[in-house]
Design a protein around this nucleic acid. Sequence first.
RNA 1: CGCGGGGUGGAGCAGCGGCAGCUCGCCGGGCUCAUAACCCGGAGGUCGUGGGUUCGAGUCCCACCCCCGCUACCA
Length: 553
Amino acid sequence: MAQTPRKIFLGVAWPYSNGSLHIGQIVGAYLPADIFARYHRAAGNDVLMVSGSDGHGTPITVRAEQEGRSPAEVSARFHEEFLESWQRLGISWDLFTSTGTENHARVAQEIFLKLLEQGDIYQDKMLLPYCLVEERFLLDRYVEGTCPICGYESARGDQCDNCGNVLDPIDLKDRRCKFDGSEPELRESEHFFHRLSAYEGPLKEWVRDKTYWRKPVLNWSLGWLEGGLKDRAITRDMQWGVPVPVQGWESKRIYVWFEAVIGYLSAAIEWAQGSGEPQRWREFWQDPECRHYYFIGKDNIPFHTLIWPSYLMGYSKATGENYSLPYDVPANQFQTIRGSKGSTSRGSAIFVPDLLSRYDPDALRYYLSATMPETSDSDFTWADFLRRNNDELVATWGNLVNRVLTFAYRNFDREVPQPGELRGEEAISQTGREIDLCHFRAGLEAAMSAAREANRYVEENAPWRLIKEDRARCATVLYTGICAIAGLNVAFSPYLPFSSQKQHGQLGNEGPVQAIGWRFSPPSPGQPLAEPEPLFKKLDPKIVDEEEARMGR
RNA sequence: CGCGGGGUGGAGCAGCGGCAGCUCGCCGGGCUCAUAACCCGGAGGUCGUGGGUUCGAGUCCCACCCCCGCUACCA
């Protein structure tokens, strides 16, 4: 199926390093990206998967203020935690860096200057609320007032909680500072703007043939385009972030949403430097044959389907070089927690480090893969997690492996018996096809379905009866079962990397399971079997109540 | 008020113009190699509501109702 070796670039959302990773980020972006990357690497394609901590922006400074630390300290602390989470979850980055590197600032400033020279970025004045008491410009959300649309008195500067309309703080009546209640004055501030409006035509043209994008992704993008694109301010009155590379702008910083997306490019450059071939990033960024995929949550869609492409179009033009645009942005919907969006304050957020302290990574990966919100929001419940682990992962796949290997180990001198028919090729190719299309749930289901078929095969051929009647035939049946397992193990490997590696070893193989590639490789008859041991643990039903209690229900 | 997504057997989901499908659960049976796991059979849905288009509609169109997100240390 995977025809010619391909080049694939995966850009994955940059998490704000202001708190622990939670389950929604994993299921929404990091897990699908990892499955995709693992599959393509096994299939022999050249993959570059990058991301990093987004260490700038207001969320970081807010947290830093609360803790009385510097933004840099906060960011560094969570960056370290992220690295550990990736490792334990098995998210296989080629590079996970941060926006705090010199390299990133240099690349971001370079793009900023090129776009400035070209006229894509221009200076203008804007009126911003300035608090005389706090002596600083106030962020949109720190201004409150009366909503001009519905009259609600506690509307925030960015949006009215009552009617839901997106607002501009200037439109509010009876404005007041959220901190001290004083009335902010409107003070003129000089800022740089990106001429997004100029890219409306080119973007419309570019999006036109993206019919294969997921429905929400395409509709969201088209909706923005139809509404007309507005120029966006790309600098902010703050001290934390990438400096504006223009004289006299020392008191301002580049807006986090301008520079963070540039991380996709700067990370590739950093990766190339680290690999000892500093120019190698060009293979992924400037070769038109390389396909770019961006794995993100649905809230980030316009940034990746319109805004980031507009920067790339402009930068390509300014430099005369080709910078690839996204091929697909398979954004996921949200995974709600017991029916609503995860919330720390309501005790319904589920954080990765905590989760990994009690559960195996593959159990989590299985559950999240099976319930991935690809087409619509899906819901996380502990009861469902328990059920899918015990009744699907353990009972179907885990049990197949365990029953066949245990039987073979005991009855055939602890080695792989002699050959006969069913293999695992079909599962491998079908799962591969689905992953290639970013249908991750379907890919997993294809493998599970093949595991059920293998269980049926074992049942119908009853080796426990054959062992007494026809030892040679029994060996054939078991060999066939083992072949199915070996094949299925490849199909499951992008989803369940830890247990796949273990299974690989149980069949007496050495080296990494990925070395097989994305194909069926028959086990050698006579090869010694390791003593079988269950691949997965059954969970105790009481965890449901325990976890619910832990979440403060 | 607006924008996007969704409402399909007990639960979770797929189907997106042509006899309503999958996993789990449930009921009945089989097997005993296996983590009380596995296999077979069965019951169970007028596909949110009301109109319309069509020879034919979960599947297209219109209106309405409900849920989720777009705001909150939170994808």
